[in-house]
Amino acid sequence: MGYLDIEHLYFQYSSKRMILKDINLSINQGEWIAILGHNGSGKSTLAKLIVGLLQPKEGRITVDGVDLLPENVYDIRKKIGIVFQNPDNQFVGVTVRDDIAFGMENLQVSKDDMLKKIDFYATKVGMQNFLDKEPSQLSGGQKQRIAIAGILAMQTDIIIFDEATSMLDPGSRAELMEYIKELHQEGLTIIMITHDIEEALYADKLVILKSGEIYQQGDIPTLLKHPEWFKEAYLELPTAIQIYYDLKQAGHDNQELEEYLWAFSSSK
């Protein structure tokens, strides 16, 4: 049993087509897992199921041993936060301060407590000097950091990032990844949803989603040993690994070089 367990999960929207099929997944506390899949493979749907925004057709989700049901979704959401893809569509407050406060207000945190936490977590994501700014004065990356601060202030155990970097430029993206790395080091459980393998490499464990099914899962070096899996799932390998396989195919054997190429990708 992990901290978050998903068993035999099925889901469909109103149409007949099953969007998720027999999903089984177990995530331990403090783990960083990456869910990698092509556009439309069902990643966002899975994320919404985990935070109780959608209800499974079949199967169950348990968090910390408790079944996720409509009755207790409020309590489960205290444990799981989610940062969505579009920075503009999740900024609820009129100012940064209001937005970080929003979740805490819902949890009925006292005002003094809120002010302290806002300061603390805004500092944590490097936004302490922006508390009075309005969303139109912020960049996409800054808005995503505010979203993180809002979740941290609710003191969840898990944060899900649903393609949270995909609308950012490489600079803001790298910056955001640094913050996420830091959070993970402090013990937070991270679920990173992405279609970018380079971004998935930060994780301890990789889950490959393909057309609504878990196609493969395991630790990254093991999966990378099977380039065909990536191809089958309409995904790309990291460039260094591609070069590695290309060299191998060309009949080139150089132990040291291969090790280097391998390490190039897993050094994150």
């Binding site: 460039t239 070069i243 280097y260």
Partner: peptide
């Protein structure tokens, strides 16, 4: 210019330095 280098260049550069 706030730009990166392409992955191929980065990998090859790494190899040159390492070996």
């Amino acid at each position: 210019f706030h730009l990166d280098y392409p992955q191929t260049i980065r990998v090859l550069k790494g190899i040159n330095e390492r070996f």
